[in-house]
Amino acid sequence: MSVIVPKSLSDALAALADNPDALVLAGGTDAMVEVNSGHRKPSHVIAINRVSELRSWTFDPVAATVHIGSGVTYAELMESPVAQLLPALAEASRTVGSPQIRHTGTLGGNLGTCSPAGDGLPVVSALDGMVHLASVAGDRSLSVHEFMVGVKRTARQPGELITGVTLPVLSGWQGYSKVGVRNAMVIALASTCLATDLDSRNVRLALGSVGPTILRCVEAEAFAAAVVSFESQSVSASDARRFGELAAAASRPINDHRATAEYRRHAIGVLASRLLRRAFPNE
């Protein structure tokens, strides 16, 4: 097994061009689990955590966007000022694993794994983030909705590196909720990200762990945009409940040893309506 530790993006891309199927290792919190369990036996490893271009985030005030390098860790996303710009991402980051995992695991790795339970993904989905990929052949950017193809399947091609994501800075409330059977360090049984935008007066809702990949709830979003009052920050209790029902109806959960589909759907309904109430606290 060869291990390459490139120090720059161009070196990383060159290394990847030589071995397009090499295991890209960021924090290793997913990849090493796979290796240790024998599910993955890489012959080449490219460890990218020394690639400084991937390890920072930048705010563009004109475009009102934040670009997050794929190597930025959850611990870094929980710190201000990025936590103020993207509060839902900070909340989602806080739900990830333990302090050790948050200091090592990256948003790029979450995208790379593309588990339906990945906690960063509902936020990127709710914000309609753009995923940036690079290879020696060139760069491309695609919407996260195109990037996430299925259960642990993405549109990334061999030889491509995820360099980062761009997320808009919205003007309204946003937040993330995740249900697990433990109060910390637990895989989501169901999760929701709700983001609101005062300027465009819309409400976005993304669901995790209840489908092959992250789901957006178009119907629930349209319903919410129609019934909430952005001026008075209010929504009626019955409309919040209805919003939850629509979210639950949009979920496509499965039964497994962690939870029943019935519980996951139920939880989505509860989380979605509670998040809407947090966004619009007045009745």
């Binding site: 739900t95 937040g175 909720s177 995740k178 249900v179 910390a184 360090m185 637990v186 509670r274």
Partner: peptide, 16 residues
Amino acid sequence: PMRLPGGAGRTADSSH
């Protein structure tokens, strides 16, 4: 919110 059921998942508010 960490002290509520759901902990880091921020699933609840005190009223629930």
